[in-house]
């Protein structure tokens, strides 16, 4: 209760000071708009449906890329865990991919796929496939041996063992990979969208720049941060917390 009050006061103060600086300093709105005009931009964006469409298109794009990345990553992860020779060759190579920021893939993606959705989805997959691959590999390698033996001694084997023990034992580590992959996918989405046409958060952001509509630019940046925060922390964060609690890992 007290914390909520302090938080509200903080934001009210922040916006008031911001508004005052803009008004008293006569700062032009294409450099720094007042908070009120950003709220206005949000309002009209949602009333006309422009922002709504942008957000939905972006979410569809990122979800397609994300789930494709999960499929690919889990398969590669299992292969890396099972075949040592793959791990020391291909496995090491994909580790190097991790140090390449998503935006570095944009020129390549644009040449291969044009300024289309496919280019963005390609970049998302490249970025998001890594964390889930690594966590799948680690999860498989770190299954407690005694849990498998306990299951075997009770007569579990084959499919029953996989479904009821191996996959379940992998869950906590996998969840971490899923969350990280999502965070990477979200960042890659925005980077890619800045360069392509059609509806989307990144495109709306870029459009704001070309129209010198700084309110729209800041509105989109806020949207990116807000959706990212809600999905990464609230959604995945709470799942991860619950799983760790149930698995007794806290």
């Amino acid at each position: 209760m007290k914390i909520t009050f302090i938080r509200i006061t903080f934001f009210v103060l922040l916006f008031s000071i911001w508004q005052m600086i803009v008004k008293l300093g006569h700062i032009p709105s294409y450099i720094l708009p007042a908070p009120f005009s950003i709220f206005e931009s949000f309002y009209y964006g949602f009333v006309t449906g422009n922002y709504t469409i942008a957000i939905i298109s972006s979410l569809v794009r990122v979800l397609i890329g994300y789930f494709m990345a999960l499929g690919i990553g889990i398969i590669i992860g299992i292969l890396l865990a099972r075949y040592y020779i793959l791990d020391v060759t291909f496995g090491r190579t994909i580790l190097a991919l991790q140090s390449i920021p998503s935006v570095a893939w944009v020129p390549l993606a644009l040449l291969w796929f044009g300024i289309t959705d496919s280019a963005v989805i390609f970049i998302i997959i490249l970025e998001a496939v890594l964390p889930v691959t690594l966590s799948t590999k680690n999860a498989m390698k770190n299954i407690p041996q005694n849990l498998i033996r306990a299951a075997q001694t009770l007569g579990s084997r084959g499919l029953h063992l996989y479904q009821n023990v191996i996959i379940k034992a992998m869950v906590p580590e996998l969840i971490t990979g899923l969350r990280l992959s999502w965070a990477f996918a979200w960042r890659a989405l925005i980077a890619g969208e800045l360069f392509i046409s059609g509806a989307g958060i990144g495109q709306t952001l870029e459009l704001g720049r070309s129209l010198a509509d700084m309110s729209q630019v800041i509105a989109m940046i806020t949207t990116i941060g807000l959706i990212g925060f809600l999905t990464e922390n609230l959604f995945f964060g709470s799942i991860e917390k619950r799983v760790r609690l149930i698995w007794g890992l806290t």
Partner: peptide, 12 residues
């Protein structure tokens, strides 16, 4: 059937 020192119960 084997009973382990560290119980090896399934936490889930």
């Amino acid at each position: 059937t084997l009973v382990f020192q560290d119980y090896a119960l399934f936490p889930w």
